[in-house]
Nucleic acid binder design. Sequence first.
DNA 1: TATAAGTTGTCAAAGATTTAACAATGTGTT
DNA 2: AACACATTGTTAAATCTTTGACAACTTATA
Lengths: 211, 211
Amino acid sequence: MEAREISKTVIARLPRYFRYLSELKDKGTERISSKDLSKLMNVTASQIRQDLNNFGGFGQQGYGYNVDYLHGEIGKLLGLDKPHNLIICGAGSLGTALAGNPDFINAGFRIKAMFDIDPVKIGKFLHGIEVHSNSELEDFIKENDIDIAIVAVPVNAANDLKDKLIDHGIRAIWNFSNTDLDVPDDVAVENVHLLDSLMKLSCVKVQHLDA
Amino acid sequence: MEAREISKTVIARLPRYFRYLSELKDKGTERISSKDLSKLMNVTASQIRQDLNNFGGFGQQGYGYNVDYLHGEIGKLLGLDKPHNLIICGAGSLGTALAGNPDFINAGFRIKAMFDIDPVKIGKFLHGIEVHSNSELEDFIKENDIDIAIVAVPVNAANDLKDKLIDHGIRAIWNFSNTDLDVPDDVAVENVHLLDSLMKLSCVKVQHLDA
DNA sequence: TATAAGTTGTCAAAGATTTAACAATGTGTT
DNA sequence: AACACATTGTTAAATCTTTGACAACTTATA
């Protein structure tokens, strides 16, 4: 089997396709052409066809794409055909907010536990999820088939935590602390960097100068 | 004066430069070369020089860049030389978590109020910030020189809210609801899309197939 | 003061991404 | 069944982004 090199740019667009296809599916739309989807999503039809072709021919000439089928295939590409078990490290307000986000659960992401160092928080339930002591981290990860770890701890604790998580077998980290986490090649990290995102907004004037 | 077209790609990298420069500044580092910074940030020195040159010559040949000066200049580009007044729409757990994030305050983003439709929440203080009724939205925005609005409401309420915000004069929206908000050209939106980001993590296998 | 070493700003080449174009193929209608 | 229409998959061109190379200049040293 041929090993195609699929660019990160393309992969980064898949969740957005998935989102629009979910909406179409909910609306009962059975088929859609790249042209119509492109209007909806505000991209070129060419890009959609090019993107989808990276993964094989999901469409049919003269017909377009079957919404249900395409939704399923992109879901598979995104790893959404199987549920994922997550833990949240850091039971602060951000960690707690993430624990309560219903979107994640609907997409098959199951938050199994939270972890914190604060004895006051340990043992409590937040949005129905128990807060454990960090000392239980290793055993919990191994016994509960944990896929993904969310890092929602203060920036100065993030790097040590990351090392421990990797050591305990975690291969996917969702990082909300305001620092870049360096990881080995076989570990995936998504750095969310909320502050960076906010700064892009306050930067508006620069963007508008050259309009 | 020449109106240079600066690409979004470059602007998107500014907050990261700013972050690393803040760290260097805190450490007391006075000067840095593009080469050393490139090692630190894990990018090419060429990219750093190319990026910075979009905005004029911040460095000095044979010397490098003065950390303090460069930090200040990038800060200006990002609009951080002046404080910004924000409101949070939606006093759910995500809105509340954002209200309590100390990073934002340190960077000069002042959260002036929260808004919600739930009468139980109205009048309460969350992280020291008062929750107002939506009916006060227009007056509050106009009287408090609000710059940026955070949208942290359920997805089905997001679009109506966006229209109101724009109507009331808001020109920058930080959107956390899981939908794309379409806005006129003179309004800036940053769509955060947490679920999209999480999906990129569960997609890991695809990326690793072609390694 | 002369020289060697270091570093930027900038140009051009290489690489990646996006867009346009169209042949091939399927659908729907008469 | 034949024809007009719609739409993909795919190729090639255009555009954008990144990288490499080096002249011009600064600093430090002898």
